[in-house]
Every structure is written in structure tokens, then in C-alpha cells.
Lab assay of single mutants.
Amino acid sequence: MTVLPKDIPGDSLKVTVGTANGKPGDTVTVPVTFADVAKMKNVGTCNFYLGYDASLLEVVSVDAGPIVKNAAVNFSSSASNGTISFLFLDNTITDELITADGVFANIKFKLKSVTAKTTTPVTFKDGGAFGDGTMSKIASVTKTNGSVTIDP
């Protein structure tokens, strides 16, 4: 049996954390987006972790974005102690894959008090994996961190 590389060099799934701005007490939304989904033969499963400074940001909610089908079954998240974990699994293993680019999740943060303008990162942590529509590992994932700026 011969195994051929399935990824064209330079191609990767792009996962990007967005940015937001606000004043202390505001609730802002930071999107997590996927790009080049079709090039990577869709997404059938993924789990990953984001870190944030809990002294500056309070997670209000984490909701599935419009590219997630049947989110009540296929999407899960949790947030505590400065870490947000995400889990997606197409429970049907074929019919509810992520097949389009767009917003995977929206994180709502309540901004805490600061004395001066502060930009705090929302960054990928170690761990996690992504699988394509056949549940094979997506070897190349380009992750881009985001941030939230609090301006009193």
C-alpha cells in the first residue's frame, strides 16, 4: 500500500482569532474563523484551546458560528481559569461536516476595569488537533492569535 501526501505544500487550514475593542463593562464579541476549508477536504472534527487573561476578560458565552451545522449536538465549549476549550465533531461522520469558510465560534467577553488603554492577547495554547471530512488528521493548520483592547 502506498500512502501519498494529501496536502499540497503551502496549503493549510487557517484558524484565526479576531479582535475587538471596548470600554470597561462593555461586552464584545471576538470571532474565531476558519478559511481554506474546502482545500483541506472539509473539517469533520477539531479540538483546540485559547488562552486569555482572566483578570482583564470575563467569558460571558461561547457560541457556535454559522458554519457549524447542528451545533447543539456537534459543538461544545467550556471556559475557566483563562482557557477556553473548543470541540467539534460531526456526529453523523459525513452529513454535518464544516464545508465552508466563515465564523466557527463567537466568544463574548465582558471587559474588566483598567486604568490605561490595554491590549490583551487571545492566543492559541498547545494541544488539540483538526481532522478532515474523512477524519484524517489535517497536518497543516495555520493559527493566528487575536486580541481585545480595553480603553477606559
Rank of each mutant, 00 (worst) to 15 (best):
T115Y: 03
L50H: 10
S113I: 07
T29D: 14
G18A: 12
T118Q: 05
T29K: 09
L56R: 10
A64H: 09
K112V: 04
G128W: 06
D53I: 14
A35L: 09
D126P: 15
P24D: 08
K41H: 09
S136A: 02
A129C: 01
G128T: 02
L57C: 07
A100E: 06
M135P: 00
K39L: 13
G22P: 09
K41I: 11
P66Y: 14
I67D: 12
N42G: 07
V32F: 08
A129R: 01
G127I: 00
P24E: 13
F75N: 01
A139Q: 05
P24F: 10
A72P: 13
T29V: 11
S76T: 02
T45L: 09
V141E: 00
K110Q: 03
V37C: 08
K110N: 04
V3H: 11
A116R: 09
P31R: 09
G51Q: 11
V30L: 13
V141Q: 04
T19Y: 13
A71G: 14
D11G: 13
K69V: 14
K117F: 03
T142N: 07
M40F: 05
V32D: 02
A105E: 07
K39A: 12
L56K: 05
S61L: 11
D132S: 07
A20M: 12
A105D: 00
S80D: 05
G128A: 02
K14H: 14
K112F: 01
T149I: 14
I67E: 11
N81C: 15
K117R: 06
D26H: 12
K143E: 04
T123N: 08
T27S: 13
S147W: 09
S61Q: 14
E96K: 04
A35F: 13
P66W: 15
L56M: 10
V17S: 09
N145M: 02
F88P: 00
D53E: 07
I138P: 00
S140I: 15
L97V: 04
G131H: 01
A139N: 04
T144A: 06
T29L: 12
S113W: 06
V17L: 13
G10Q: 10
K143L: 02
S12G: 12
V3F: 13
A20D: 10
D90K: 02
V30K: 08
N74M: 02
L56V: 12
G18W: 12
P9N: 08
D7I: 10
Y49D: 00
A79L: 14
N91V: 05
K110T: 03
P31H: 11
D101M: 01
V37H: 11
K41N: 10
L50K: 05
K117Q: 05
T115D: 07
I67R: 13
I67W: 04
V15Q: 05
D90P: 02
L89H: 02
L56N: 08
K41Y: 10
D63W: 11
N42C: 08
V141N: 05
P24I: 13
Y52K: 03
I138Y: 01
P31V: 08
A71E: 14
F124R: 04
T123C: 06
T119K: 14
G65H: 11
T149G: 15
N145Q: 04
D132H: 02
A71I: 11
K137E: 03
E58F: 09
T33Y: 12
G10N: 11
N74H: 00
G51A: 10
S140C: 04
S76D: 14
K39M: 08
I98R: 03
I84V: 07
T115E: 06
A20I: 11
D63A: 12
N106F: 07
G51H: 14
S85H: 02
V122N: 07
V59M: 11
K108Q: 06
N74D: 06
F88D: 01
T118N: 06
V148A: 08
T134K: 11
A20L: 13
S55K: 12
P66V: 10
V3G: 12
F48S: 06
V28G: 09
P66T: 14
K108C: 04
P9S: 09
D95I: 03
A79M: 15
T92W: 03
N91Q: 05
K23E: 10
L87E: 02
D101A: 06
G25M: 14
K125P: 01
G127H: 04
V103L: 03
D101Y: 07
K23T: 12
A116N: 06
I138W: 04
K41C: 07
T120A: 10
A72Y: 13
P9Q: 08
T142C: 03
K69M: 07
L4S: 10
G18Q: 11
F75H: 10
K137F: 00
A100G: 09
V73M: 06
V15T: 09
A129S: 03
D90Q: 00
D11Q: 11
K125A: 01
D101H: 08
T123W: 12
A100N: 07
P5E: 06
P66R: 12
L4H: 09
D126L: 15
V60W: 12
G133L: 03
T119S: 09
V122D: 01
T99Y: 12
T149Y: 15
E96M: 00
I93R: 02
V122F: 12
T16E: 08
M40I: 11
L87C: 00
A139E: 02
S140N: 05
P152Q: 14
T120M: 03
F109S: 03
F48W: 07
A64Q: 07
V30R: 07
K110C: 04
K110R: 06
S85F: 04
A116D: 06
F34C: 12
T123H: 10
I67V: 11
I138M: 09
D36R: 13
V122Q: 05
A54Q: 12
I98F: 04
C46T: 10
T33A: 14
P9A: 09
D90V: 05
N74E: 00
V62C: 08
I150W: 07
N70P: 00
L89V: 00
D126G: 15
V148G: 09
M40N: 15
K125F: 03
Y52V: 09
G127R: 15
C46R: 03
S136E: 00
P66I: 11
T45W: 00
L111D: 00
N81M: 15
V73G: 02
D90T: 02
L87I: 06
T19K: 11
L87M: 03
I150Y: 14
D63M: 13
L97M: 06
I67L: 12
V17G: 12
P24N: 13
G65Q: 09
L89R: 02
T118C: 06
G18H: 13
T144I: 07
A139G: 07
P66C: 13
P66E: 12
T99H: 07
K110F: 02
D151L: 15
G18M: 12
E96A: 07
D151H: 15
N81A: 15
L13A: 11
D63C: 09
N42S: 12
F48E: 04
T123D: 06
G10D: 07
V68D: 10
T115V: 07
N91L: 04
K125L: 05
K143Q: 02
L89D: 00
T45S: 03
V37F: 09
N70H: 13
T16M: 12
D26E: 09
S61Y: 13
F86T: 00
D126N: 15
D11V: 12
D36K: 13
L89P: 02
L4E: 11
T27R: 09
L56Y: 09
T119Q: 10
G25E: 12
T83R: 15
K125Y: 07
D26Y: 09
I107L: 04
K6S: 13
T94H: 03
D53Q: 13
G22E: 14
F104E: 04
T92S: 01
K39S: 11
S61V: 09
A54D: 11
I8D: 10
Y52T: 13
T45Y: 00
G102Q: 04
S147R: 06
P24G: 09
I138F: 04
L4C: 12
V28C: 08
D26K: 09
A71L: 07
I93H: 02
A71T: 06
T118M: 07
A100Q: 05
T94Y: 15
S136W: 15
E58G: 09
V148E: 04
P121R: 12
T92I: 00
F48G: 12
T33S: 10
A72G: 13
V148I: 05
G82V: 15
S80P: 05
A35G: 14
V114M: 09
G44A: 03
L57F: 08
T45A: 06
T149K: 14
F75A: 00
N106C: 03
E58V: 13
V43I: 09
P66L: 12
T16K: 14
G44T: 01
K137N: 02
S55N: 12
S12M: 08
V43M: 06
K108F: 05
Y52Q: 10
P121V: 05
Y52I: 08
D7Y: 11
I98H: 00
F48N: 05
V17N: 01
F109Q: 03
V37T: 10
D53N: 09
I98P: 01
D132I: 01
S80Q: 14
V15D: 14
F109T: 02
L57W: 12
K125M: 00
